[in-house]
């Protein structure tokens, strides 16, 4: 019998705890495959964050440190500075990175920490029950914006990749999505680049992945992929926002 597809060594055998239809699992797999392909699993250290991916330390087949809400980039800084040969990455959602942790992410980038940040943007606080996030789209209904996000009082969604690209210390920033096979392949290319940059000592790399939360959004899985592609990607345009390697 020929093996034509097998699970990456970058993931453990623990069953994922994400809701059916959520694309966290796809992003986990992409990151894990990249770690395996770059042959860095044995020296990788995951900094897990708070949110739906709070237990990501159970799923990635590498050493892990669980961080407080928003603080993963500071924790990653501590790790990378005392263990510069390790491959250190954070896996953070939009509540974690774009709200409570804006200080830490901006300053880690500002220092040009040689780490990789996987920023999963699903426009909502999933874990706590679907509250409004800084990235929630205008008019989007959540449990704390029951009448739809009113940009007059609740602000317009924050564009993290655009923001991070303006920081002199960032090396590479790209926004991708996981809405169909083509975009998933592109996402993997970006993630691989973000890790390769760290291996090469280039500096701070972040990939923002537009992801789904079909439960929080109140959509079925198919419609939620459509929502990523049509609604999210039009507000959060895909593309490379910064690549110091291509200047």
């Amino acid at each position: 019998m020929t093996v034509i597809f097998k699970k990456t060594k970058g993931l453990t055998d623990k069953p994922l705890t994400y809701c059916p239809g959520c694309t966290h699992g796809i992003i986990h797999r992409l990151v894990a495959e990249v770690l395996e392909e770059l042959n860095v699993l044995d020296r990788s250290i995951l900094i897990a964050s708070v949110g739906c991916s709070v237990m990501s330390y159970d799923f990635f087949n590498c050493d892990s440190i669980q961080a407080a809400h928003g603080r993963a980039p500071a924790v990653a800084t501590g790790v990378k500075r005392v263990r510069p040969d390790s491959i250190v990455f954070t896996y953070q959602g939009d509540g974690d990175l774009a709200s409570i942790g804006t200080g830490e992410i901006v300053q880690a980038a500002h220092r040009g920490e040689n780490i990789t940040v996987i920023f999963v943007n699903n426009a909502i606080y999933g874990m706590t029950g679907g509250q409004m996030a800084p990235t929630t789209l205008p008019g989007q209904i959540t449990t704390t914006s029951p009448y739809g996000r009113d940009v007059k009082t609740q602000g317009e969604p924050i564009k993290v990749s655009e923001l991070m690209a303006t920081i002199p210390g960032t090396y590479y920033v790209e926004r991708v999505m996981t809405a169909d096979p083509v975009s998933v392949r592109k996402a993997k290319t970006a993630i691989k680049k973000a890790f390769q940059n760290q291996v090469d000592g280039k500096g701070f790399s972040m990939v923002e992945v537009l992801s789904s939360c079909n439960i929080g959004w109140g959509l079925n899985p198919v419609d939620s992929l459509k929502y990523i592609k049509e609604d999210m990607a039009s507000y959060f345009p895909l593309g490379v926002y910064k690549d110091k390697g291509k200047i």
Binding site: I47, I65, R71, A74, V79, V82
Partner: peptide, 24 residues
């Protein structure tokens, strides 16, 4: 050793957390 001036006391203690967790 390693010296980092953090952006806040919150970040500093979390850097300590990370570095200690990594065995330093």
């Amino acid at each position: 050793g390693v010296f980092v001036q953090a952006e806040s006391e919150i970040a500093a203690i979390n850097m300590v957390y990370g570095a200690a967790a990594a065995g330093a």
